[in-house]
Amino acid sequence: MEIIAKRPEALTKEPFHYCPGCMHGVAHRLIAEAIDENGLINEIAGVAPVGCGVFAYKYFNFDMAEAAHGRAPAVATGIKRARPDMHVFTYQGDGDLAAIGTAEIVHAANRGEKISVFFINNAIYGMTGGQMAPTTLPNMKTTTSPYGRNVEDIGYPIRVCELLSTLVAPYYIERVSLLTSADIIKAKKAVEKAIRYNKENRGFTFVEFISTCPTNWGYEPEKARQWAKENMLPFFKPGVFRDKGEGVE
């Protein structure tokens, strides 16, 4: 018998601290598999965020930096410029990337930094206990929008892929979903492409994952995925926003 699927080499043996049913682990695995498949384990470094992904530096089996909240793209810029022979990615959640780190992500993308950014969007702050995120949906209840997100008061969720697509420099921008097995298979292709483009130093690559937060949404893991399918996907439509490698401008 032959092993056809197992824990990738690019992940350490450390069990994830994520809640049961949280999709962070799936995103980690997809990134690790793409790194293994591209043979990059000896020349790649990752940057972990602040938020639920904060311990990502323990889970990836190569050099990792833990950044201040929102600053991962700046830290990745420093690493990539200091060691151009290495390949660098960041792993960030919606609060980290789309609120406190808005300037860093926009400008790293605008410089066309030759890094990959993996962006987990679950419409909520998980680590701090379920507060409103910049991607929280209209009328969605969180601990800091207890009456539902009031768009008249606090505005609409930010669509990061669309926003970054207004910039000229980014090489590849895609939004994928982790809400079904079929979606995950598609997401794997996007991650693989981002890492491959990164390996070839083509430019700034960005993959957004539509994900879940069963704990803070208050749903069982499968119900959370169902809820996200019905509520998140209509607002955050999956798709390729930019792929210069395939002529999608």
């Binding site: 940057v47 950044a67 700046a74 830290v75 810029t77 420093g78 690493i79 410029r81 200091a82 400008h107």
Partner: peptide, 25 residues
Amino acid sequence: TFIQAESEVAAINMVYGAAGSGKRV
């Protein structure tokens, strides 16, 4: 490498990344 960063905050975090890579920054 010279980068005019988007902010002082970004600049010092680029320093964090480069210093973490062991280079004089």
